[in-house]
């Protein structure tokens, strides 16, 4: 509603300018400069109006809480699965009754960490959570642009297929430096990216092995 209201203001201003210019034309000779200025300001106001309608494809505003919680802190404490976090990109659960599990990966960077949380019970159930974030300080969350790794289980193998080094291209509009000076917005510092992180919740006594390219990290102990 407010967006609609705000988008109406420039239109009102433009109409007012047009009416005023028409009224004054009767009195004085409007020169090229006047028209140049009127057209220029008109185009600027028009693009302001259009920018309100171009917003449809823009991501939703970030949840306030997301900026406050530190993703890694929540992961290491083993608490992340218990809270409803907007960092969550993807979630799968698998029935698994074996005693050990080998994790293989594709397209993983060397040293990629897999986080493992042991549940307090043996419920023959493996949950794979994918966490990650990509947000910009001016209140936008582009996390949905991240392609999460796919997790599959067949027999005693779990394969995690990373999408490879993914490059996301993004164009961002910044405020002028005169504003950033007051708001404290910086050029790149405003951007945070994390993940994608694979986080597994496994039954208590399940034995987990992994290839050398992956390092397993147990959390929440």
């Amino acid at each position: 509603m407010t967006t609609l209201l705000v988008s109406v203001i420039p239109i009102v201003i433009m109409i007012a300018v047009l009416i005023l210019s028409l009224k004054f034309r009767l009195k004085m000779n409007v020169k090229i400069t006047h028209w140049l200025l009127i057209v220029y300001v008109g185009v600027l106001l028009l693009s302001l109006c259009i920018s309100f309608f171009m917003k449809s494809e823009e991501p939703a505003e970030m949840v306030e809480e997301k900026q406050k919680t530190d993703l890694y802190e929540a992961i290491y404490s083993g608490e992340i699965s218990k809270i409803d976090t907007p960092y969550l990109l993807d979630k799968n659960s698998f029935d698994y009754s074996g005693e050990s599990l080998s994790i293989t990966s594709a397209n993983a960077e060397v040293g990629t960490t897999i986080f493992i949380e042991r549940k307090s019970v043996d419920d023959n159930m493996i949950e794979a959570h994918i966490y990650g974030s990509f947000s910009h300080m001016n209140g936008m969350d582009f996390s949905e642009k991240i392609v999460p790794p796919r997790v599959k289980i067949s027999e005693q193998y779990m394969s995690i297929i990373y999408p490879g080094s993914q490059v996301i291209k993004l164009a961002l509009m910044k405020n002028v430096f005169a504003v950033n000076q007051i708001t404290g917005d910086k050029m790149v510092n405003g951007v945070t990216i994390d993940g994608p992180i694979v986080y597994l919740r496994i039954p208590q006594s399940l034995e987990v092995k992994a290839g050398s390219e992956l390092s397993l990290q147990e959390v929440g102990k």
Binding site: E109, G132, I168, L170, A171, K174, V176, F177, M187, D194
Partner: peptide, 25 residues
């Protein structure tokens, strides 16, 4: 615009293009 790039340890890379009215100002 002005280009910038940032990557995460998990292989996620972001290429930005910043636009601003700085030059106009």
């Amino acid at each position: 615009g002005i280009g910038g790039s940032l990557s995460s340890s998990e292989g996620l890379q972001i290429n930005f293009n910043y636009y601003s009215a700085d030059v106009v100002l």
